[in-house]
Amino acid sequence: MADKLAMMERRRQRLRYQIKQKGAGRPRLSVFRSGRHIYAQVIDDAAGRTVASASSLEKDMRSSLKTGADKSAAEAVGKLVAERAVAAGVTAVVFDRGPFLYHGRVKALADAAREGGLNF
C-alpha cells in the first residue's frame, strides 16, 4: 500500500511541475475523484482563489444522477464546471488530473469540460 501511495505522490509532483512550467499563468482545472463522488474546480493560482467548482455532491446533481461514482456523473460535473467557468470569464485552463491516470471518469470529465467551452 505504501508503494501505491508513493507512486501517486510522485505522479502528483511530476504533474504539478509540468503545470507550472507549461501553464503560462492560466488557471488550472483540478480534478479529484473518490470512491463515491467526483469533484472539479477551476483555481487561479496567481490570485489564490477558486473561480468555479462543481461536484457530484451538489443537491441537484444527487437527485438527477444514479450514483456519483460513474462516467455519467463525471460528464455532468465536467459540463457544469465548464459552464460556471465560462460564466466567470475563464475559457483557457490547464488540466490538473492530480495523481489520477487520464482514463475512465477523469477522461470523461475532461471531454465534457471541453464540450462545455473550456480550452486545454
Results as ranks from 00 to 15, higher is better:
114 R>N: 07
84 R>F: 05
112 A>K: 03
75 E>R: 15
118 L>F: 10
81 V>R: 02
87 A>E: 15
74 A>F: 05
115 E>R: 12
113 A>L: 00
77 V>H: 07
63 S>A: 14
56 S>L: 08
47 A>L: 14
42 V>D: 06
50 T>V: 15
65 L>Y: 04
108 A>W: 02
48 G>D: 09
109 L>N: 05
51 V>R: 05
15 L>N: 14
68 G>Y: 05
29 L>H: 01
75 E>F: 03
46 A>G: 10
8 M>V: 04
82 A>P: 03
28 R>I: 01
42 V>M: 09
25 G>P: 06
114 R>C: 01
1 M>F: 10
76 A>C: 06
110 A>R: 09
57 L>R: 14
13 Q>H: 10
46 A>Q: 14
22 K>I: 00
115 E>A: 15
101 L>Y: 11
45 D>K: 01
60 D>I: 05
69 A>N: 13
62 R>A: 12
13 Q>V: 12
31 V>T: 08
75 E>D: 07
111 D>I: 03
28 R>M: 06
102 Y>C: 08
99 P>Y: 10
37 H>Q: 11
53 S>V: 00
14 R>I: 09
115 E>S: 14
103 H>M: 05
115 E>M: 01
107 K>N: 05
33 R>Q: 13
39 Y>I: 06
90 V>P: 03
29 L>F: 06
71 K>T: 14
42 V>S: 07
36 R>N: 15
